[in-house]
Every structure is written in structure tokens, then in C-alpha cells.
Design a protein around this nucleic acid. Sequence first.
DNA 1: TATTGTTATACTCTATAACTATA
DNA 2: TATAGTTATAGAGTATAACAATA
Lengths: 160, 160
Amino acid sequence: MAHRTIRRADSPEGNRSELAGDAIRRIMQVASTIQQDQEADITRLGLTPAVARALYELDPDRPLPARELAEQLRCDRSNVTALVDRLETAGLVERRIDPADRRQKSLVVTTAGRRVRVRVHQAMSDSRLLAGLSDQEISDLRVLVTKMSDCGCPEVGEAE
Amino acid sequence: MAHRTIRRADSPEGNRSELAGDAIRRIMQVASTIQQDQEADITRLGLTPAVARALYELDPDRPLPARELAEQLRCDRSNVTALVDRLETAGLVERRIDPADRRQKSLVVTTAGRRVRVRVHQAMSDSRLLAGLSDQEISDLRVLVTKMSDCGCPEVGEAE
DNA sequence: TATTGTTATACTCTATAACTATA
DNA sequence: TATAGTTATAGAGTATAACAATA
């Protein structure tokens, strides 16, 4: 209480850290709303969110080994097995043993998989929340958010 | 293919919807990074993310019935039972039967709960991703994101 | 009859550890 | 021995349905 910075009112017209805190909370709230909308779209495609994300991260033009997909999803290899099981059952992805290293299995997106993947990409790129913003505001927003992700780019300092 | 809008290059210098799609994807990526950081902080407090969010949504100055907490968390009442069980076991929240309507139980944040809740709030308000932005940029970002959430405010049209 | 909180149950998502087949 | 993928298992999170107590 004693070592509190002086501030004006309830709205964060005050110092940087209050403004920043408010911005972060609002970003997370907006992201939560967007995610709910996206998950509804994904469900309509007959996929679960995690399966859709796996399909989204796969490169239709360059088959990935499962290990690499796990890295992109930032999850354990064991999960990828289950996700690819479901994608394969749905006919969207095929496993092919890599002849060069028979331990690896390449994940190949099928023709049907490509079609569904486009719709997943659309679902993940669309939001009604931008409807009230001008072209210039959307452009500004994009620049600022890009600046944030550039700042966070390091997996640096994560000594391991 | 035939009905595609003409565009210049790979970076979305093109039309509004491409810029918007890029902005949405970047927002979600940034939110994901922030969430990972926040969950690490929450774990250090000895809480799980869902339990921390429940504590965060409770009002220390006005005990809520469990049903109302479920509405704020946008989840089923049955989940709240389990979350409050854990908060009560940890000594952070107490259930009190409402004398006015003995079906309801008010959720009261304890003194220890208040202390932890402050730290949860801090964890949810802080992000290293804003480090590279100027005060003005943070302010602009906050305005734009607020405009997004205002746009999404309606639970309107959700006929139910 | 309707509502509050609870219980039982099930599914998704994720992690760890142990296994196999390759290298 | 090290790595890729798999399996078994467990915990967190969430949803639905049925139930007891209360209104």
C-alpha cells in the first residue's frame, strides 16, 4: 500500500505497467473469444481443435517426419501418434516409411487432406472481431502484434 | 483459382481480408506465447490454470454463488464443484450456504485467497512481449484491442 | 415444477515412462 | 548407444445426464 505508484483513476491512464497490464488482459480476452469461434468452425469440419492444428502445421508440399511435427506443435512425440492416427483414419494424412532412415515416418497430406486444410486455414484466419476496425487500424494492429512476436522470438535463455 | 483477388507478393500488402487474416493469426500466436508464460507463473504458485482462473474470477468483496462463477468461466456448473473443491482444500475459498436461499452456496475468498489472487492477477497482467514497444505503441495497441472486444461484445444473435 | 449444487461418467488433450525397430 | 515411433498410463479440463435438497 505504501509503495504504490500514484495514479489517477480506475482506467489505466497511469504509468506504463498499468497500461501494459490492461493491454495484456484485453489481448487474452480477445484471443479467448476468437478461439471459441474458431473451435466452433473446426467442429463443423468434423475435427477436434488439436487434430485441426496438426493438419494445419503439416506442409502439404513437404512431408514431415512425426518428430518435426511434434516440435512445431510443441508437444510430445507420443501425442503426435494419436493425432496422426485420427488424421489417417479420416483419410487426410498418410504415413510413409522414409527409405533413407527406416525409423522415420513421413506424414503426407492427401488430396482430401489438402481440401480440409484450406478450410482449417480459413477458420484460423477469420474473425468477426475485426469488423469494426478500418483498414488502417487493422494494418496498425498487425504491425504492433508483429513487433510483440519479434520480441518474443528467442527460445533464447531457455538453456537446455 | 479463377475468382481469386489479385495480390502482389507473399507478405499481405494486399487486400483487407489478407491483412486481417495475417493479423488474426499473429494475435493468436502471441496469445499462445503469453499463455505459456502465464501458466508457468501459475504453476509456480502451486495452482493449475483452471483453478487459478476460478480464483481470479471470484470477487473478494462480493461472494458469488457457484452458478454465477460458472457463467463467468463459461463452463458447466459441474466443473465449478471440482474447482472450488480444490480451492477450498487449499484454504483459499470457503463455501457458505446462503440463508436467503438455502440451495445456493456463496463462494467467499479467504485472507490467504486474497493474497494468492493478487499474484494470479499479476501473472495474468504481465508479459515480456511488450518489452520492445514504446509507451505510445502500448497505448495504441490497447485502444485497438479494446475496439475489437467492443465489437465482439454481443452475445447478441445467439438466440437461446 | 424449476433451480442449485453434486455425483458419475466419458472424451479430449497432454505428459512421462517403457517398449520396438532401426541406426 | 542413441533415435523414431509407439504403447500404456495418468492427470487436467470440460461436457452431459441423473440425483438430492430446496424453492
